[in-house]
Design a protein around this nucleic acid. Structure first.
Lengths: 185, 185
DNA sequence: ACCTGAACACCGTTCAAGT
DNA sequence: ACCTGAACACCGTTCAAGT
């Protein structure tokens, strides 16, 4: 659903920017050069800033679908047993966080910074996770001292740490297993 | 024990650089501007590069004592019960890693990069941790699938994640508690 | 409305010229 | 031996000038 308020050429530029950002961020991570992105999109650097006033705004547009899918997943999982639901969701979150270099940092930073263009999206994730966590804590399945932010931070930490391994997926699985058993109360 | 091979003025510059780096890195983290450090030391930028050809070399000099102390600590802990020894050492490692913003990243990066000036120091840490880990694994106290690198990465991940919290120490304690129980096999 | 790119203030890094 | 800082190639970000 293209924004009809945008002139055709503006909409086209926006799409070129997103496609270029997708590529460059996949290659170089979340702190990729914005100039590189503008160059790849064959657009002036000012045009990038016009459409995405901050790096976080660009990231937000880039990650939107992924975040929405994760939130929807959280809702689905309310139908599952409390402990299993939390762990399953966190596993999905960790896997998603590990797909883009620098994403765990972007998420935790945005969670802290209410002014970040990424804040609302990340806060939505926290709320989604909070529902699952609270339910499991009420059932006595997960240690009571953990906050929803702790849970996101821990998961981001595992994804972050796995990024330095030769075999990232295998390490993430091992680290996740540690967390999984450690969460139980 | 000042290096006698260095001229008096060179030795003085080196010390000024280290003192300045200590301050700036404490304030801004491991990716602080090298120019800032040279300015604070009242020394030309070329002089910084002459004494410390890479950022990692500077970091290595800065962290030397801390790393040595941690390695010594690992040796002491060989006198303690296996599981308790590992956990105690990891707690010290996590606390040390959390003192400087960006240090967990520097450590895991150096572990991967054999050419890093920080590699030897970090690899020494890994070896020190490996002895403790192996002993605990042989005793069946810690899950057998974890490697020494996994252990350092996990600990670095917790320190990294805690850095985004309002109350960093409290969060590190909570996350560490999760890891601590999760490590047991 | 929107696009462009020069301009500014910063980097990291190198290296010719100095003492 | 060692020090210096100009020079280079990059950034992120802004904004006057264009269409």
């Amino acid at each position: 659903m293209p924004d009809p308020a945008l002139r055709a050429n503006a909409r086209r530029n926006r799409e070129r920017l997103l496609a270029a950002a997708e590529e460059v961020v996949t290659e170089r991570g979340t702190s990729a050069s914005l100039r590189d992105i503008a160059r790849r999109a064959e657009v002036g650097i000012g045009t990038l800033y016009r459409h995405f006033p901050t790096r976080e705004a660009l990231l937000e547009a880039l990650m939107q679908e992924r975040f929405e899918r994760l939130q929807a997943r959280a809702d689905e999982l309310l139908g599952e047993p409390p402990y299993r639901a939390v762990v399953t969701w966190l596993r999905d979150l960790a896997a998603a966080s590990a797909t883009v270099h620098g994403l765990p940092d972007a998420v935790l930073s945005a969670l802290r910074d209410r002014d970040s263009a990424l804040h609302a999206a990340c806060d939505g994730m926290r709320t989604a996770g909070a529902r699952l966590l609270e339910r499991a804590q009420s059932a006595g399945a997960i240690r009571a001292d953990l906050t929803p932010s702790d849970l996101l931070a821990l998961t981001a930490g595992l994804a972050w740490a796995s990024d330095y391994a030769e075999d990232k997926e295998a390490r993430l699985e091992r680290l996740f297993a540690v967390m999984e058993t450690g969460l139980a109360s």
